[in-house]
């Protein structure tokens, strides 16, 4: 197959605390074929130029969320972002901002998962489960449809300036997860969850910057979920 090729420069964040406490950028030149994603390029660089380059990846299908990183200043999944869609011939790749870097493009997501745990990310019911299934009407499902599709890549939380300055803030991903269960017709812990998010480190720390909406690779709207939760929390308090 005859594919047109182009040379791109990759400027990649490097950090290995076992070798040096200082971070740096390494530059790699790569011939990029049509359709290649940023992840394809990182794998090619690792295979042919520098085997020590570290990054997370798994499904290569924008489903697992492992390869979320900051590409040309914006968070995205390396596996679904094609290099040809980026402007210019230089691609700058950084680890997700706001999280501590473990090595190169690998970040420590401990705080991210801890914030998720705080909103009880599972179905809570005190009523007995029916024998076969717990049905929902299409309208009830529609209400949570987009929130269910979150792949927990961390792009939204990492893009949020409120989270950068206060990692105790629940941040968009956990608040979207809270929305997913609070508005789930089968769940019975709405009041408890609303109390958890109606907190100075919860809903009200959202400053409507909306980086989260731009960053979400699944085109979800954490900002709209947060606004809906704010209204619900107000309704509960009056």
């Amino acid at each position: 197959m005859n594919q047109s090729t182009n040379k791109y420069t990759f400027k990649i964040f490097r950090y290995d605390p076992e070798r040096s406490p200082r971070a740096r950028y390494d530059t790699f030149s790569l011939e990029v074929a049509k359709g290649m994603t940023v992840l394809d390029c990182l794998q090619a660089i690792k295979a042919s130029q520098d085997g020590t380059l570290s990054f997370r990846r798994s499904c290569r299908s924008a489903i697992c969320g492992s390869c979320a990183m900051n590409i040309n200043g914006k968070n995205d999944l390396a596996c679904h972002l094609q290099v040809s869609l980026l402007g210019g011939r230089t691609v700058t790749v950084d680890p997700l901002p706001g999280f501590p870097v473990i090595r190169d493009l690998v970040v420590d997501l401990e705080e991210f998962y801890r914030s998720l745990e705080r909103v009880l990310p599972w179905l809570v019911r005190s009523s007995p489960f029916p024998d076969k299934e717990l049905p929902q009407s299409p309208a009830e499902r529609d209400r949570i449809d987009s929130a269910v599709n979150c792949i927990l890549c961390g792009s939204c939380t990492s893009s949020c300036p409120s989270f950068w300055f206060n990692t105790r803030y629940l941040a968009p991903a956990a608040l979207l997860k809270a929305y997913r269960f609070i508005f789930d017709s089968r769940d019975e812990a709405k009041g408890e969850r609303l109390e958890l998010v109606d907190d100075r480190n919860g809903l009200w720390r959202c400053r409507t910057i909306y980086n989260c909406e731009e960053a979400c690779p699944k085109l979800l709207k954490p900002n709209e979920a947060i606004a809906a939760l704010k209204i619900e929390a107000l309704k509960q308090s009056v």
């Binding site: 950084d94 901002p97 909306y210 980086n211 731009e214």
Partner: peptide, 13 residues
């Protein structure tokens, strides 16, 4: 690194 995040209208606002 976080200050190098792409600045959009929301950030300026």
């Amino acid at each position: 690194r976080r200050y190098r995040y792409r600045w959009g209208e929301g950030m300026w606002a």
